[in-house]
Structures are given as C-alpha cells and as structure tokens.
C-alpha cells in the first residue's frame, strides 16, 4: 500500500531517477538501505576522525589529510555501490513495459538521458569555468569558451551521456 515517503526516500528516488510511486515493500527496502548507510557513515565519521589524529602523529598532518580524502572517497563509493546494488537486485529501477510499449519507452529514456546530460554538463561547465577563471585571474566568459574548457566539456558530455543512455536502456524490461 502506498505510504507517505520520507525525505531520505525522496532523496534516493531523485538520485536514482525513480519517478514512480513506491509501494510498501519498495519503501521498506529503501528505508533499510538508508538506515544501513546512515549508521555506517556515522561510525566511519567517528572512527576516521580518531584514526586521522593518530595518523597525523605518525606520518604528518598533510599526508594524513591526503589519506583521509582518499578513504572518504572510497567510503562514498562503497555507500553508493551498496545502494545501487540494493536497487538493482530488487529491480526497483526497472521500467517494465509490454512489447508494444518498448519502442516508446526507449525513446522516452533517450530523451530523458539527453536532457539530464545537457543540464549536468552545462552546470558542470559553469562551476568549473568559475573556479578556473578565479584561479587563472581571467574573465569568466573567456574561460567558459576557451578550448581546454570546451574540450573537457565535450569529453564529459560523451562519457556521461553514453553512460546515461546505456543505463537507461538497460532499465527498460519487457514483461510478457
């Protein structure tokens, strides 16, 4: 039965592009995964703070902070991987269609991927140009339209757009 969704469920749904209403079982799965991740991250936060203090005494503050950054990245990837695995295993992200609806669903997925890629890439370019312009003491628009900046944008668009299309197409499942 449909229940009122919590903020963490809404966040997870937004992040993974799950746009349909989730039923009680799906909400239960997301809640459980969200709780695991929250508890895990809190434990990591406490332990890593302690660990980095010990590490700073052994290898120096700068090295310990660099190590901490990498472990933070690793932990984020593990949390993301766990949630993605839960969603994939339980088919929460599947878009189930009949044979007749398949072509339409693929077209819709492609359109959505294009839109998402465009928005993300433009946003990335704006933020990246801003930081680069500030670092190089150059004007914003000059940096925005500079070749190295546009080249990075193109690579990012191709990689992200390609991945988005492939993931989107894999989500469409024909149910007989």
């Amino acid at each position: 039965m449909m229940e009122k969704s919590t903020w963490s469920q809404r966040l997870i749904k937004w992040f993974y592009g799950l746009d349909r209403t989730l039923d009680e079982y799906e909400q239960h799965v997301l809640d459980r995964a969200g709780h695991h991740i929250t508890v895990g991250l809190m434990a990591y936060l406490l332990l890593s703070g302690l660990g980095v203090s010990f590490l700073a005494g052994m290898v120096g503050v700068n090295t310990s902070l660099v190590i901490w950054q990498f472990t933070n990245l690793g932990v984020c990837l593990v949390a993301w991987g766990y949630l993605s695995w839960a969603i994939y295993k339980l088919h929460l992200s599947d878009i189930e269609v009949t044979t007749k609806q398949y072509q339409g669903a693929i077209k819709a997925v492609l359109k959505k991927s294009q839109r998402q890629t465009l928005v993300t890439v433009v946003l990335f370019q704006m933020i990246d140009s801003l930081s680069n312009a500030w670092l190089d003491s150059a004007s914003y628009w000059q940096t925005f339209f500079s070749w190295p900046q546009l080249r990075t944008l193109l690579i990012f668009a191709v990689v992200m757009g390609g991945a988005s299309v492939l993931i989107g197409m894999a989500r469409v499942k024909v149910v007989y």
Binding site: M2, Y25, D94, V175
Partner: peptide, 13 residues
C-alpha cells in the same frame, strides 16, 4: 502484473 495493478503495488512486491 495483473494482480499488482489490481491492488496498486509493483509486480516485484
């Protein structure tokens, strides 16, 4: 799928 639609849940459920 038919049962899921009749009671308003996902087929996986």
């Amino acid at each position: 799928m038919g049962l899921a639609e009749a009671i308003g849940v996902a087929r996986q459920t």
